[in-house]
Nucleic acid binder design. Structure first.
Lengths: 337, 337
DNA sequence: CTGTTAGCGCCTTCAT
DNA sequence: ATGAAGGCGCTAACAG
């Protein structure tokens, strides 16, 4: 049997089919008797409104896109990316919105066109862009589009509205924590920074400002750049140890790198935290898997994602949206520092 | 400026709008001169076909759903779930299909209705269901639906077609590997099994069959059930050590639990693998983060997801689909066993 | 090879 | 409180 339409329901209920439409859309203005009859007919026919027809008529898809910029292969396997998705779903559940995931594989024109087609074809009403690693020019280009867009972890003046966290403050707090425990040679394993507005850049700024705040000298030989990966964290400690005076603490810009630092320290028979205190950033599950458990800066990813979804929905609805929403982070002190 | 429609393009190109439609859809049968004119008009107007109109007319959404059954909060943060999503995207890229993620929070009627509405409203053409933890009755109910559905990691006779891997063989191989290295008291940390067709059940079956294959006795005191989590792996080793004779090897049904076992062993000053050999299952990134690196059974998640997407697309296209697609797994030998 | 016509299922006037 | 018409943008029949 073909799917029932409004007409079928109307015929069965013995009313005109816009009356059925009214019932479906909760318009008041019909007798409760007719409403009841219509409701029964709908149930009997197992009626389900056709999404495409509705979307066309209303010029609204009731769908948003979660866009991940991923020049490398794996992307959704990253807990950062996955948790954001969880948070978005959490907000969208209840709202009448669905979520589409979209991978932006590069900044090539075809890729941008594919994304733009999503908007222009009316397939989505708006998008959340995970912008942690996105090149600046891409963000600039996207912000110029006349479509509702909210960026995640990349707030810039004049850019699209977005939500982020106090990355800089988080690392400053970590530096203060270490300094208060008597550490003086605090090293930093940075993330790759495609732009001064990137998460990596802001975390590194927190390192510099944190040192200044506690009266410690910035020493470039104590800074190594990683690529967020565990392996790069291991390598970073190796590099640091070949450079003159040893650090007595390391702050890594991600938990994965911090775990790498701890692993490398152990294999060199350094004690953590006695010989080397280690602090991470993120507070992902595996932060508690290492021994000693990782002291880290907790990024409230889920809450950020919920804010992002709400901001996007507000923009779609035409409501004014705050330009930048900055959530606080917190230092979670465990055994490693 | 409002978005250009077929009519606008036709007016500008001086042809009927049906001709434009033909050009857009790559129908041949017009002079290359007119085609050229139309193409130029399209470019000038930045024309983009309206998805909803097309979907309505074609009765096809060109969208599939990735449905995750997640009674607990976090879901997409799980690397298993995330990697599948990566794999689906990989296949869908190139095909003209988009992907929608959907969380099935429970087996309540409202939740099932929400999913059914996706199909019946014509919002998606098919779905991939991650079924590793899904209760049997849910799977049965879904398989009865007249919609294209492919299950992931749950193949049953009479059920929906699906893709899975040789979970049983994988654990059998692990047992054989340990036995060949002289281990005799091989323990097993199982996953929670909601059904005899679940991944957890099949991995445990591999343990039993593996023991039998090498002539070892099955001993229930060597089996503990965890919940896939790191913490449950730690706890499982604790439990095993209180039960009479100690095991000399442990196979955990997931990498997370295996890492937990290693962590617990270390904190009890047991040497791995000398005192206790440990094997995991999955081969996720963090398997190489521990010391010694984890010997584990690699689950080809990405390839499985690509198969699943292809199978679903085939079903949607009405092509016959193999009922069950079983991919091989492989033992990755590292330091822990 | 091109143009005309007729809906797909729905919602929004407008009239009753 | 209910009914009739019109059209959203597109494609699949035709007809010319």
């Amino acid at each position: 049997m073909a799917r029932a339409t409004l007409k079928d329901v109307a015929a069965r209920a013995g009313v005109s089919y816009q009356t059925v439409s009214n019932v479906v859309n909760g318009q008041n203005g019909m007798s409760s008797a007719t409403r009841e009859v219509v409701l029964q007919a709908m149930a009997a026919l197992d009626y389900q409104p056709n999404h495409a027809a509705r979307a066309m008529r209303m010029a609204r898809a009731n769908t948003i896109a979660y866009v991940v910029y991923a020049p490398t292969a794996a992307s959704f396997a990253d807990p950062y990316v996955g948790r954001i998705l969880d948070g978005l779903h959490r907000t969208l559940r209840g709202e009448r919105y669905d979520l589409m995931t979209h991978v932006l594989a590069s900044t090539d024109p075809e890729e941008l066109d594919a994304l733009r087609a999503l908007f222009r074809g009316g397939r989505v009403d708006g998008a959340v862009l995970v912008a942690g690693q996105v090149p600046d020019d891409l963000v600039t280009a996207l912000a110029a589009w006349p479509h509702p867009l909210v960026t995640f972890d990349l707030v810039r003046e004049g850019g699209a509205p977005g939500v982020t966290a106090a990355h800089r403050d988080g690392v400053m707090g970590a530096v203060a924590h270490l300094a208060a425990r008597g550490r003086r040679r605090i090293a930093f394993v940075a993330g790759p920074s495609p732009s001064p507005h990137s998460v990596a850049a802001r975390r590194e700024q927190g390192y510099r400002d944190g040192l200044a705040a506690v009266g410690l000298q910035y020493d470039p030989t104590l800074v190594v750049e990683g690529d967020w990966s565990h392996a790069s964290g291991r390598a970073a400690l190796g590099t640091l140890l070949t450079r003159g005076e040893r650090p007595d603490a390391v702050i890594a810009a991600s938990d994965a790198m911090a775990v790498g630092v701890i692993g490398e320290a152990r294999s060199r028979f350094m004690r953590v935290p006695e010989d080397l205190a280690v602090v991470g950033f993120d507070d992902f599950d595996f932060a508690t898997w290492v021994d000693p458990a990782l002291t880290t800066v907790r990024l409230p990813v889920q809450a950020m994602a919920e804010h992002a979804a709400q901001a996007l929905l507000a923009r779609i609805a035409g409501e004014p949206t705050p330009a930048g929403d900055v959530l606080p982070v917190s230092l979670v002190v465990r055994g490693s520092a």
